[in-house]
Design a protein around this nucleic acid. Structure first.
Length: 210
DNA sequence: GCCCAGGTGGGTA
DNA sequence: TACCCACATGGG
């Protein structure tokens, strides 16, 4: 199945497993419930105004961060969370997430999820993209596509879907799996989508009516 | 005008 | 534990 998806979608060139953890954290918070385009706009505003470091963002005026984040929506929440999480990383973790990422997987994940604005999805993105840890972040696309394809239980929650997917793919493919399922979901498997019939996995899809 | 987008956290039962 | 809802702008 991954081979079909690899042939159908290009993986982004920036895709590696060693992105800067703090930058990944900030981008992922901005991206919550937001399109890529608006995430990019907001992040460019923010990185144009501040260094993306715990020091700079912890000391920034929250109103300044809010102005940068407006294009992404939910900007008051996100600005408050970014300032607060920056302060915690600075004061509690000496300005770096590396000490968290060096811990064993479960402990590392738990510590990340104790940070404000960091739930399972955001924690898994940081673990996968910046920690090189074996996990598959489950966003709305991944969840929907996995259920449509029968890869995960229909009534499963976040952890059910994540564990089902991880049992089906090799750990070395988790990064590609995450990205390719999102690509698939975005393009073909969503409400009121006219392109469903062109889906490269339509043979596998039980509903065939995305 | 309406619906949804790469979620999280707080509240309620 | 399991849902429900606020948060908010931009694009189809």
């Amino acid at each position: 199945m991954l081979e079909v998806l690899r042939r159908s979608f290009a993986l982004p060139e920036w895709l590696t497993a060693n992105m800067d953890p703090f930058e990944t954290l900030i981008i992922t918070i901005i991206s919550q419930n937001t399109t890529d385009r608006n995430t990019k706009r907001a992040f460019e505003n923010l990185s144009g105004k501040f260094h993306i470091t715990p020091e700079a963002l912890a000391n920034a005026e929250v109103e300044e961060i809010e102005r940068c984040l407006k294009p992404a929506g939910l900007y008051r929440n996100k600005a408050k969370v970014i300032k607060e999480v920056s302060r915690i990383v600075l004061e509690k973790y000496n300005g770096s997430l590396n000490s968290i990422l060096e811990k064993p997987f479960e402990e590392s994940r738990r510590m990340l999820m104790e940070l404000p604005g960091v739930g399972p999805k955001t924690a898994d993105v940081i673990l996968l993209f910046s920690g090189g840890k074996p996990t598959i972040p489950v966003d709305t696309h991944v969840k929907r596509v996995s259920k449509r394809l029968g890869l995960a239980p229909e009534n499963g929650g976040y952890e059910d879907v994540r564990k089902a997917l991880q049992s089906l793919f090799n750990a070395g493919d988790y990064l590609d799996t995450h990205i390719l399922l999102i690509s698939l979901g975005r393009k073909y498997c969503r409400a009121r989508n006219p392109h469903c019939g062109e889906c490269p996995l339509r043979i596998l899809c039980p509903s065939r009516s995305c």
